[in-house]
Design a protein around this nucleic acid. Structure first.
Length: 173
DNA sequence: CATTCGATCGGG
DNA sequence: CCGATCGAATGA
């Protein structure tokens, strides 16, 4: 059984490349019991920088978006609607604010449910995507048979950017 | 300071 | 469709 974690170079390119590449990779979480839970990533969305009106960084550096400006390979986690944490992986190079939202896994659908079920929160924000953080990502054993693309969810306010096919769903048929 | 609002979810 | 629930962003 392969359990290789993704190399740092994986995250150092565009979110548009990383988002589909993350499909079927394994999200690994070390639980308090010491046991490691692994989920297969099945849905992602790319947020591609300051020009992207759906990206939080479209309004520049702020307290919240600062981690997006880090070199790819750290988590960007924020609270939304006062009750759900969104789990993102920062990609690209330093000062290039791109990120991939992990929207769902085969086991758990929905970005809010995912973090709730795995009990992941703000403490992960800015931490590296490595076992040191207790949460990391491992290589896929096989790629999805198909990758469906579509507009991102919940960003209708983003004008022309709302329609771009930056949402990726991995399927086996 | 005050107010608005969101990369969601679950219930009706 | 609507309410929950709260921090960050925005505006006065």
């Amino acid at each position: 059984m392969k359990t290789r974690q993704l190399p740092p170079s994986f995250y150092r390119c565009s979110a548009l490349q990383v988002a589909p590449d993350l499909l079927y990779c394994r999200l690994a979480v070390r639980e308090s019991s010491g046991k490691i839970k692994r989920l297969t990533i099945s849905e992602t969305e790319a947020y591609v920088g300051e020009e992207d009106l759906a990206c939080h960084a479209s309004r520049g550096r702020t307290t919240r978006t600062e981690v997006m400006y880090q070199e790819g390979g750290v988590f960007y986690v924020y609270l939304i609607y006062g009750m759900y944490y969104m789990l993102n992986v920062v990609t690209a190079v330093r000062d290039r604010p791109e990120a991939v939202l992990i929207r769902g896994t085969r086991e758990v659908s929905g970005p809010g449910r995912l973090t709730r079920d795995l009990q992941l929160g703000g403490e992960l924000n800015g931490r590296p995507v490595t076992p040191k953080s207790g949460v990391w990502i491992e290589e896929k054993e096989r790629p999805p048979k198909r990758i469906r693309k579509g507009p991102r969810v919940g960003v209708s306010y983003a004008g022309a950017w709302a329609d771009k096919p930056y949402r990726f769903i991995g399927e086996d048929r």
